[in-house]
Write a protein that binds this DNA or RNA. Structure first.
Lengths: 160, 160
DNA sequence: GACTTAAATGGAGTAGAATGGATTAACGAA
DNA sequence: TTCGTTAATCCATTCTACTCCATTTAAGTC
């Protein structure tokens, strides 16, 4: 079974928690357990990675930081990835509590409908409205790219 | 669990003290105890590091300074970081008193709302207004970068 | 040097929210 | 139809944040 694929509609409960569907729950279990990392995406959703995956992704960033703590640029990097990230644990009942600041940033209010999207290395949570916006954007981009590829193919008879 | 991540809204009490949220408190405990170092950042907030972390960051600077203590530049550096830095202790109730000059420099008035930001090696305290300014800056940058990536993907049919 | 006043510090109590668990209802499969 | 699994609601316990108060410390004045 391919891990972290597909979509699910779920809803945020009154206390700002979401319940994982059994499939994603199993995927997390296979990827190292209940320790996860949430990341507030600039494009509008929350990404959830297994902790192991996250650590692999940002290896070595820290060592550098402690050496050059005096640099403003280095501090900015630490500040922004630190601010947008939070580690969590999947509860015994398969629930994840979304941190307050992410609820606000990403429109994931209590009692609202959201979409869980498998992204192969983890999942993402989007508010329903923002998700359809994002889908539109990706479809338009993909169509546009297709058009351009066709046009470019016409221009160059030798290709392919 | 990863230490010093995420954001929290807190408020400065009438006497210029802030209370750490339980998460950050635990992070400090794990990083060596209640001894901390405050540093007034030139970009507008107050950084709080565990003492051990701070010492590690400053070690090289100190060694250098003791070798060339006669240099004017070196004295200036020491003077500046000395002036902007103060060591403190987290109280039994998890509170930190912000030194007067930092309150003024960073807009952290008594009874005002502030944000505590995890920066992976410690935390930072920002006044709410300044923090949202900083966030805006980052979001605009990130959006701009995203747009350019999409545009560049359209321009080059071979990519991906 | 002593007294008065102000400020800082440490602590406790309470209202509210978050957390974890349990129960019940609904859906799907055998 | 029945059993098993999943989802949603509800409740109780725990924890946390906020406010208020008491004690100590410092500073200024007579």
């Amino acid at each position: 079974m391919l891990p972290f694929f597909g979509q699910e509609k779920v809803s945020v409960d009154a206390n700002g928690r979401v319940k994982l569907c059994p499939r994603f729950l199993a995927d997390f279990k296979d990827s190292g357990g209940w320790d996860i990392v949430l990341f507030s995406l600039p494009e509008g959703g929350v990404a959830i990675y297994p902790e192991k995956t996250f650590l692999r992704m940002r290896r070595s960033e820290l060592d550098e930081a402690e050496k050059s703590g005096g640099s403003v640029l280095q501090r900015r990097r630490l500040r922004f990835s630190g601010a947008m990230t939070q580690s969590e644990k999947i509860s015994n009942q398969g629930r994840i509590t979304i941190p307050h600041f992410m609820r606000e940033d990403c429109g994931l209010a209590p009692n609202s409908d959201v979409v869980m999207v498998g992204i192969q290395i983890g999942i993402e949570i989007w508010s329903s409205e923002r998700w359809s916006g994002e889908l539109d954007k990706m479809r338009r981009h993909s169509n546009e790219k297709g058009e351009r590829e066709m046009a470019s193919d016409l221009m160059d008879p030798r290709r392919e």
